[in-house]
Each structure stands twice: as structure tokens, then as C-alpha cells.
Amino acid sequence: MRPVRPRTAWKGLLVLAVVAVITVWAGFGVQVDVGALIKNFSNAADKVVLLAQPDYGFFPETLSALAQTLQMAVIATAAGAAIGLPLSFLASRVTDPSRPLVAVVRSVLNVVRSVPDLLYAAILVTIVGTGALSGVIALVLFNVGIVVKLISEAIDAVDRGPLEAALATGATWVRADRAAVLPQILPVYASQTLYVLELNVRASTVIGLVGGGGLGILIDQVRTFYRYHQLSLIILEILVVVVLLEAASSWLRKRLVS
């Protein structure tokens, strides 16, 4: 016997209709204009040809910016991870006996995390001046948000036995956390710090677009002067650095958590 045909999924169709309506509304909002796009694109075909031919002679000039990008990423990761660790303990119900404090720390960091790093950089550039420092501060702000979210979730999931045992011996919260919780989350902490480093290398390549130092400043220069050969070389460099770092980092992280 043939099985009964399933009823038409009205719910699914309704969701699809809502999605379609929002998409059309969004399309009007951003003024979709395929005609202009095609016209622009045929005008820009020669630019694409230029982009396909990186200017390798430009490489020595990019080295200092590349180094600054990596320095910014390392510094921001170190600072973000260092500031984030104690805050993570305050943001977990396991290690923080004060519920209101947990709520405050969590909501402040939720707010901090909801602003993208480049927006921070754009504002900080006017406060501390253009250069690597504003980029580093922007990255640190963003990193603290991520580190605390990831690590406090790891702390939430630890085995509470050792912590209770330590507290029962009369240890203070700080000492109990240090002896009974920290060793449990250390591999996750190291792994997430590497993940944050990955994020930072990507972000620090572009944070210079708003004046934050690193390769981004160079991108901004060559793009305002339409030097497409050089632009494509910089992008190639970013690609190589990001791919190498991610390969190394994911290999290390697999070893850390398993």
C-alpha cells in the first residue's frame, strides 16, 4: 500500500513567504541594481586582470607592516587572555558565589562583545591617535569579551568535586579556584587562546583600514592610489599568513584538548 502523502507543510511555506518578504524589503533598502553592476563590472575587467598579477617586487616594502600586524595580534592575544582569565572566574556560577556579580560581569561583556572590533578601532583612533596602539586596544576589548564567554562556559562545565573539597578544607575562593578549577580548564584556556590568536591575525590585517596599524594601512594606501598589483600581493600575503597560522593552530589545539 502506498503510504499516505504528507500534508502540505503550511508552516514551512509561511516561513518561506516571510523570508521572501524580508528579502524583497532588504533588496529595496540596499537598492539592488544589477544593470549598474554589470556595466561597472565590464568597465572594471581590466582591474581584475591587474589584480591577477601580484607585484612581487613590492614585497620588501610590506615586511614592516606585516611584522606589525603579527606583533599586534600577539600582544592583543596575550593581554586579552590575561585580563579575560580572572574575569571568566567572576562570570561563572561555579566559581563566583555572588549571583548579582555574575549577572553584571556577563551583561557588561555581552555589550562589549556586540560591537565589532573595527568599530572600536575607528573610535579609538581619534582618542589615542592613529597607529598600532589604537588597534591593539580595540583588539584587546574584543578579545576579553570572547575569552570570558568561552572560558566561563568551560568553567560552568567543570567537575565541582575538587572545588567543594578545597573549600571544605577552609581554602579561600581564590586559592580553591587556583587549585581545583584552573588545572581543569587549562587545556581549554590554551586552546581558546590560540583560537583568539587566529581571530586577531585576521582582524589585525584589516584594522589598519581605519587607522589602527599593520597591513591595513598599506591596503588603504594602495587602494586609494589604485595600485592593484600591490593590493593583490598584500592579499596574497594575508592569505599565506592566515592559512599557515590556522594550520599550526588547529594542529596544536587538537593536541591540547584530546
Binding site: G29, V30, Q31, D33, L37, F41, V48, L209, L231
Partner: peptide, 12 residues
């Protein structure tokens, strides 16, 4: 940056 430098700056 790549796409914008080829097609110009719009929301689209």
C-alpha cells in the same frame, strides 16, 4: 575591498 574597488561603493 576587492569587490568595492572593482564595482564601486554602494550598499548593494
Amino acid at each position: 575591498v576587492l569587490i568595492l574597488s572593482v564595482t564601486g561603493l554602494t550598499a548593494f
